[in-house]
Design a protein around this nucleic acid. Sequence first.
RNA 1: GUGAGCGUAGCUCAGCUUGGUUAGAGCGCAGGAUUGUGGCUCCUGAGGUCGCGGGUUCAAAUCCCGUCGUUCACCCCA
Length: 423
Amino acid sequence: MKFQTPRGTRDILSPEVEFRNYVFEKSRELFEIYGFKEIVTPTFERTEVFTKGIGEASDIVSKEMYTFKDRKGRSLTLKPEGTAPVVRSFIQNKMYGKSLPIKLYYCGQMFRYEKPQAGRGREFSQVGIEIIGTSDPLADVETIALVMNLYKQLGIDKTKLIVNSMGCRNCRKKYLQDLNKYLEIKSKNLCENCNFRIEKNPLRVFDCKVDQCKKILSKSPILRDYLCNECEDHFKNVLKGLESLKIKWQLDNRLVRGFDYYTKTVFEVTAPKLGAQDAICGGGRYDYLIEDYGGPLTPAVGVAIGVDRTALVMMRMGIKPFSEKNIQVFLIALNDTAKKKAIVLLDDLRKNKIPSDMDYGNRGIKGQFKMADRLKAKYVLILGEDELRNNKVSLKEMDTGKQSIVNYDDVINYLKEKIKESN
RNA sequence: GUGAGCGUAGCUCAGCUUGGUUAGAGCGCAGGAUUGUGGCUCCUGAGGUCGCGGGUUCAAAUCCCGUCGUUCACCCCA
């Protein structure tokens, strides 16, 4: 193959693209019902926008960004996630001057230089929401409720909501001290990978799948025990809120999101049929991010939904909530004169919003019928010598095989009626 | 970034272990049986740089090396 898409990118073709569009449509619809307004940020940003918020030491910043220099030598980066640009925009456009909270949603392509796998490409789509300017736990609840609602509407069941609290600046500091102490003592019994994590980001040890490490970690200090009163209250209220909405959750002390900016609530939803890449959305609270970017201290919460993965789950689960948009009418012309008349009729059908098509080439009647069949056309219109002579059109209903003759001038109205009836 | 599997017709795959005539099947596609009627059946046909490059050999789809792509796990995350 001489020309092919770069590694980790792909063409998204017909059955999948409809699923994907459906996810976009449903998300947009729900976001607006929940009172969110769309924001479109650039595909690339100044590199600092991401290094600042996500964290220099994170995997994303340290090895997964598509960073390049423009012609003036400025360092730019294709966005690897959606929250940092929204926060940048919030500050740049002085949205803190508006009445808060402000509720924003985005849809777009993200880019990360990762090793590709099913459900993990180097370019992928996300939709996401951000509620900026409130520390109320209800905002966390609303965010979670929205995504759970979305999956329900998409027909995805057996999702699992995992929640945890990361604490705030204060309680996390104490916790990390104690965790490090504990890990140091046990370090010789932990795997090599974990020892590496201890240096890099101790919270990451909870991702380990080695039995021995799991055992040791099950007795490690738990972040939740270190939560200050405020964080504890917040978390309890989030869980209470979920309960009142009848949303089931699963507590996971080991859930640690990969961005440094998270505080308090973090959550993730996983879906079946995806193997190891089973997170279909992830989010949480980020109360200091805006301040870190130089804005006023403004608490916020958000979530990002993986569109490609969501579409993939739907396909693998055999969910097909949308009807196929097939051709309604197929035109068959049997000679050149008929063809000339057919293109006029076809144009008319289309102007009347009746999905219709005809053959370009010079297939025989049989070939054209086959095409009509393959396109799943409901009606076939035949224009041949007989019909031309009498200014008529033969109309065949493909499901029943019934055929009738209709006046050329009446055919459009006749079909409109027919189609209306069958809906 | 680490480890493993896979790459043969448009699609799903067989053949590779043990190298040896013109590389096969099913589905799909085209034509015909039915000269103005689809789906079912039957017949015929088209379609392949065996991912790419190199090596071993008289001879490579088959063995070896490299490379690209993909899948799975790790990792990370959506």
